[in-house]
Simulated assay, not measured.
Amino acid sequence: MLELIDKDRDLLLYLNNLGDASYDPFWLLVTGKWVWIPLYIIFLYLIFKTYKPKSVIFILIFIALGITFTDQIAGIFKYGIARLRPCHDEALIPNMRMITCGGQYGFFSSHAANSFFIASFLSLLISHKYHWLPVCIFVWATVVSYSRIYLGVHFPMDVIFGALVGTLSGGLFAEITKIVLRKQQSI
Rank of each mutant, 00 (worst) to 15 (best):
42 I>G: 07
42 I>D: 06
42 I>Q: 11
43 F>C: 14
43 F>M: 13
44 L>Q: 06
44 L>M: 14
47 I>E: 04
48 F>W: 12
50 T>W: 03
50 T>Y: 10
51 Y>E: 08
51 Y>C: 06
52 K>C: 08
52 K>N: 15
53 P>R: 13
53 P>F: 04
54 K>F: 10
55 S>Y: 11
57 I>N: 13
57 I>K: 15
58 F>S: 12
61 I>T: 09
62 F>G: 03
62 F>T: 10
66 G>W: 00
66 G>H: 02
68 T>D: 06
68 T>N: 11
69 F>K: 01
70 T>D: 13
71 D>E: 14
71 D>W: 02
72 Q>T: 10
73 I>R: 05
74 A>W: 00
74 A>Y: 00
74 A>C: 15
74 A>S: 15
75 G>I: 07
76 I>S: 10
76 I>Q: 09
77 F>C: 11
78 K>I: 06
79 Y>W: 10
79 Y>A: 05
79 Y>N: 14
80 G>N: 11
80 G>H: 06
81 I>P: 01
83 R>T: 00
83 R>K: 09
84 L>R: 02
86 P>A: 10
86 P>L: 12
87 C>H: 01
89 D>W: 04
90 E>G: 12
90 E>Q: 14
91 A>L: 14
91 A>H: 13
91 A>P: 11
91 A>I: 14
91 A>Y: 11
91 A>M: 11
93 I>S: 09
96 M>C: 09
97 R>T: 12
97 R>A: 11
98 M>D: 04
99 I>F: 07
100 T>Q: 12
101 C>K: 09
101 C>R: 09
102 G>A: 14
103 G>M: 11
103 G>W: 10
104 Q>A: 14
104 Q>F: 14
105 Y>A: 06
105 Y>P: 03
105 Y>R: 02
108 F>L: 13
108 F>Q: 01
108 F>C: 03
110 S>W: 05
110 S>G: 14
110 S>F: 05
111 H>K: 05
111 H>F: 07
114 N>K: 05
116 F>V: 07
117 F>I: 06
117 F>R: 03
118 I>T: 10
118 I>D: 01
118 I>L: 15
118 I>V: 14
119 A>I: 05
120 S>F: 12
121 F>Y: 15
121 F>H: 08
123 S>H: 06
123 S>T: 15
124 L>K: 14
124 L>F: 11
125 L>R: 06
127 S>M: 09
130 Y>V: 05
131 H>C: 13
133 L>Q: 02
133 L>D: 01
134 P>H: 08
134 P>R: 13
135 V>A: 13
135 V>S: 05
135 V>Q: 07
135 V>M: 05
136 C>M: 11
138 F>S: 03
138 F>P: 03
139 V>F: 06
141 A>E: 00
142 T>N: 01
143 V>D: 02
143 V>C: 03
143 V>L: 08
144 V>M: 06
146 Y>A: 07
146 Y>L: 12
147 S>P: 03
148 R>S: 01
149 I>V: 15
149 I>P: 00
151 L>R: 00
151 L>M: 08
152 G>D: 04
155 F>R: 02
157 M>E: 07
157 M>D: 03
158 D>Q: 07
158 D>P: 04
159 V>T: 03
160 I>M: 08
161 F>E: 10
161 F>I: 15
163 A>Q: 00
165 V>G: 00
166 G>D: 01
166 G>R: 01
166 G>K: 00
167 T>H: 04
167 T>E: 05
169 S>D: 04
171 G>Q: 10
172 L>T: 12
173 F>N: 01
174 A>D: 06
